[in-house]
């Protein structure tokens, strides 16, 4: 299922879908499309070894939470293909990136475009904060900082069972403020878990604004190295840098790729909202209309006709 399209085109497609969604719904996690589109496009279109989806292209409605009375419960992991020894697994650790992850599934042909129309609709499985029953999700990660630990455990377990597939985590930089992230790296280093891989969207943004204004985290590459990970820092909009980074040898250590990104990359007008880009809700009809025209132009499409 790989490389049907150029990864740059997939990234552009993600941005267009997230943009259209945000304009139609008067807001959304739009800046994350600016920062993370290359990372998600690269993972799904090139790097991950995934099988064919096992769940329907049009997502099923919400079918209940895990419970002894709900024997047919399943997660949304089937959009990433079957759990087989040779295949990779992916966790989207910051679950608010779900809108971007769903757009990626559509762009790589794993979910129908109708899936995005179900986003945050009552009774839908396509939740705003990706739930484990949401398309492409395998575990709940809306409480930030738990994804890498789960991935480390899964990776260790898979290695024990002789599985060759890797376990990948898409992370956000806000997660480095949580102590658990560092406990996870420490455990990976201690147990020599080198089949876990992470790419982190280092957009220097969190809910309240820039990371340095909220809680300074300093040189996170130096910290990851000190905690026992292999860590590479790249320009997160440079696909060839991503391709090179993953080749970094990391025997006995997890590999963490820090993708330094710009939270208004390809949507220059969003800079007006700096330093608070975490959730862009248009402040007025005037702003919505202006951003619609400007971003559509940046993305090479016609403005969205959102009145209809």
């Amino acid at each position: 299922m790989q490389n049907k399209r150029q990864t740059v085109d997939v990234a552009l497609g993600i941005r267009r879908r997230v943009f259209e969604h945000a304009i139609r719904n008067n807001g959304g996690y739009l800046s994350q499309a600016c920062s993370a589109a290359e990372q998600l496009a690269w993972l799904y279109n090139e790097e991950l070894n995934l099988g064919e989806p096992t769940l329907p292209m049009i997502p099923k409605p919400f079918e209940g939470v895990p419970s002894a009375d709900n024997p047919d419960y399943h997660t949304g992991a089937g959009y990433n293909g079957p759990f087989e020894a040779q295949y990779d697994r992916l966790f989207i650790a910051p679950a608010h990136y779900a809108l971007n992850a769903y757009a990626t599934l559509i762009e790589v042909g794993r979910m129908a475009p109708e899936g995005l129309e179900m986003f945050n609709k009552d009774g839908s499985s396509v939740e705003m904060i990706g739930a484990e029953h949401s398309p492409g999700m395998e575990v709940h990660n809306g409480t930030l900082g738990i994804g890498l630990s789960t991935a480390a455990g899964l990776a260790w377990g898979r290695k024990q069972r002789g599985e060759t597939g890797r376990t990948w985590v898409f992370m956000s930089d806000g997660e480095v403020q949580e102590g658990q992230t560092w406990e996870a790296v420490q455990a990976c280093a201690h147990h020599g878990i080198d089949n876990v891989f992470a790419i982190m969207d280092v957009n220097d943004q969190q809910c309240d604004g820039t990371m340095s204004s909220v809680m300074e985290v300093g040189d996170i590459r130096a910290k990851f190295l000190a905690f026992g990970a292999a860590c590479i820092e790249i320009d997160g909009h440079d696909l060839s840098a991503m391709r090179d980074a993953v080749k970094e040898p990391h025997a006995g250590k997890p590999l963490i790729i820090l993708a330094r990104t710009n939270p208004f990359h390809t949507m220059s007008i969003l800079e007006e909202r700096f330093p608070r880009l975490h959730y862009v809700r248009f402040k007025s009809e005037e702003e919505r209309a202006r951003m619609n025209i400007s971003i559509a132009k940046d993305l090479g499409i016609d403005p969205i006709d959102y009145a209809h």
């Binding site: 939740e127 705003m128 904060i129 809306g142």
Partner: peptide, 16 residues
């Protein structure tokens, strides 16, 4: 402890 979004007053699902 000023706890916002009690119970199901958020669409954020289980984690929220």
């Amino acid at each position: 402890l000023m706890a916002f979004l009690p119970g199901i007053t958020t669409p954020g699902g289980m984690t929220h």
